[in-house]
Design a protein around this nucleic acid. Sequence first.
RNA 1: GCUCUCGUCGUUCAACGGAUAGGACACCUCCCUCCGAAGGAGGCGAUACAGGUUCAAUUCCUGUCGAGAGCACCA
Length: 595
Amino acid sequence: MAVPSHGVIAPSGTRKRTESSVPKHLPINRHKGDGPETPRPVAGVSFPRYTAGMEERIQKALGREAVIRRPPNLDFGDYSVFVGPEQAESTAQAIRNELGESALKVEVAGKGFVNITLSREAVALAIAEASAQGANWGEGNTNKGQRVLIEYTDPNPFKEMHVGHLMSNAIGEAIARLIEYTGAEVKRANYQGDVGPHVAKAIYARLFPSNIDNGAPWGVAYKMGNDLYESDQSHRKAIDEINKKIYDKSDPGINKLYEAGRRESLAQFEIIYEKLGMEPRKRSGNERFFDYYFFESATAPLGLELVRSHPQVFTLSDGAIVYRGEDEGLHTRVFITSQGLPTYETKELGLAKLKADTWDFDTSITITANEQKAYFQVVLAALRKVLPETAQKIQHVTHGMMRFTEGKMSSRKGNVITALTFLQDLLDVAKERANKSRAGEPDKLAMQVALAAAKYQILKQASGKDIIFDRERALNLEGDSGPYLQYALTRARSVLEKARSTKHETPNKIPEVPYLLERLMLHFPEVVARAARERAPNLLVNYLTELASEWNSFYAQERIIGGDYEAYKLRLARAFVQTMTNGLTLLGIPAPEKM
RNA sequence: GCUCUCGUCGUUCAACGGAUAGGACACCUCCCUCCGAAGGAGGCGAUACAGGUUCAAUUCCUGUCGAGAGCACCA
């Protein structure tokens, strides 16, 4: 479904380190002296999954459902669960028995919290695991065997892709990757409005050379057509005529123009998907970045068939066929106009059927702006009566709209920010920095940074809420931002690179007390699992921001190369690089080598 | 008017009914003879209002005020 004319724009940037206040200066790891030997994984032997399994082990000890979380302050421990004052002591004992030597201490605190602090060995093992598992670090199996279809982006041919589509794309792609990472088979779908009044408007503008320069982009033609449509009855009539002709393909001249416009628009979109860093799903062809491309021209007939074959579900009203949702607390919506044309609602029904016919999914997720929430509920209500088994597999995830601080923007007023201009603005700022950076290819880096800035702003917020765009803030590459994460990553990489050339013989010792950095890092798999479960990439964004902050602190305070515990600190740096790289990749944010 | 969503430092975002409400931007102090200052350390600063439920409420319920979105032939 095409994302409608959102208000426009980008978010501003801020928030980080949200999940807890990690004190930066515990009297940790200051002492010298010999720590225990680092546990080493034995080649070819899979070692116990201390971290990924930790929550499960605690859960098992509890014997019932309870929320296990990272405490608000790591002073309390590495895991915390609230069980109430009566149960606290017995629960603590059960957890002690279950965790054994993995836990340094399990204690009752406050009015019924059980706090669990991992042993030094357990933390070190988690860090070793992070590096050893490489690109698989953080993977889960909570969605193993699931087949998930996810539809997002949904730009309309003949119109421009704007920032709203960018939001849908960033959120959809991140959710797709998160769900894949937890074991599901994921197919990406893009649903596009290649028929309908907006197409007629664009074609109408193009039909008459006096209206518009024939070489103008289709997005411009659409705007022109829309203005004409609203300005005069005769234009409106003519455009309605064209709309019909597009549906029934009765006019060769229009058909030709239509085919060209559709092709040109779609090709343009693919270029943007590539810029956005999507992975090609197919080797060649014009449609490469999604597994499936669904079009309204295909869903319309399917939807019409569904509506017409269920006269008991729909009712005739003023010549139109409608669905009355009042009984379900919804409202009435038109499915077939009095002129006999299918509306968006009917096409959506057809889309549900088309999806189900195309791939046998367990779950179908659709990402749209939240202004479509009520509409979607009506469609879903109708679908439950028409295709009940498909209806129950459908989930709707909504995102807020981008709005300007100066006031509301509207596509009808023509002040929409297109996807390309938005990216270009960020790119211009990023370029200034990139040219002064250590990167070998500043242009490439600038694009990576611009993408990071854009996606971070979109993904950092809980979905469903509007994103307020403050241009100055949006273009600020400091503080809570995508580049902040990238910067932390490249500094760690830089240390590792330098360590390769300056080789020191250091004893393989580890500090007795774990650094906060490692204690934070070991939670990565759990964060990924939760973000996937809740379809909430912002949880991962928050966590990575906190992690980057902790790394920057660690880096500022601790001498790594040439310092105490050099080998262990380098191992930590390696684990951090792996965690940040995997996290950024899951979000669809580029992880540069240098910057 | 009806329905839904939302009101948290000056601004913009966190906090899955639990611990001292956490960041960033802005503002004020500090820190590059030392692995990268797109960085680090510190300071200032908030739950719209009124009730209710609960051992415990930013979170759940009711009301008031305020903001946004949706509400029949657009998508």
